[in-house]
């Protein structure tokens, strides 16, 4: 098994929490893992990404080879497209459609969505809305993880266990709402892909 994924977003949107949960899930499945993060200046509202690699074999590079990523998981639509050079021909792009607009020349939303939908393998999801609908707007990133989970070759329960571990200190209520967010994202993606 091998999944190379790029996590993308804007500094402060919580992609490192997603990475931590996937990391926990990978450990549970006794897989090799490498995860390169961005720290420092870019975290101040700039574009951030994390290269996350999971494999049943030992992993060499901390960075994913461009053109070989199996998945781009982005919590922001414009950021999802920044990493297209990394996506393999058969790879999936799974992105939140809700823009995070903190620049003056942000592109038209319609243009962005049109570009995303022109890709052969994509899931575009309004994760902010789904997170709000289940009463936990802050769980947007977990909805996104759920939507990407069908494309990461690990049992769904492992992601659930990852959430239980990462949010252990925050109590049962937080765990439950995030499990719900994970499931909602997963169900959306399954509907989309079947469609």
């Amino acid at each position: 098994m091998k999944t190379d994924l790029i996590l993308a977003g804007v500094g402060g949107q919580g992609i490192l929490s997603i990475a931590a949960i996937i990391g926990m899930a990978a450990l549970e499945n006794k897989l090799f893992l490498k995860q390169a993060e961005v720290h420092g200046m870019s975290q101040r509202g700039g574009d951030v990404q994390s290269n996350l690699r999971i494999s049943s074999k030992e992993i060499a590079s901390d960075l994913i080879t461009m053109g070989k990523a199996d998945l781009i998981l982005s919590v922001e639509p414009m950021e999802s497209l920044r990493y297209l050079p990394y996506l393999s021909k058969d790879g999936y792009l799974v992105t939140n459609t809700k823009a995070f607009n903190n620049i003056t020349d942000y592109p038209e939303q319609d243009e962005l969505i049109a570009k995303i939908k022109s890709l052969p393998h994509h899931v575009a999801i309004d994760a902010n809305k789904i997170a709000s609908d289940i009463g936990s707007p802050r769980s947007m990133n977990i909805v996104m993880l759920g939507a990407a989970s069908p494309f990461i070759d690990m049992p769904f329960e492992s992601f659930e266990n990852g959430i239980r571990k990462i949010f252990a200190k925050k109590g049962e209520d937080i765990i439950d709402v995030n499990l719900k967010a994970l499931k909602a994202g997963r169900e959306f993606a399954e509907r989309e892909v079947l469609k």
Partner: peptide, 29 residues
């Protein structure tokens, strides 16, 4: 990165689609 090293080894460059022009710079602030 792996792609630059591939080039130096005369191996195939696998880089995917270019970044679309609608994607703008997002500097830290």
């Amino acid at each position: 990165n792996p792609n630059l090293v591939a080039k130096s080894l005369k191996l195939e460059d696998t880089t995917g689609e270019d970044i679309p022009t609608i994607v703008k710079q997002r500097p830290p602030s």
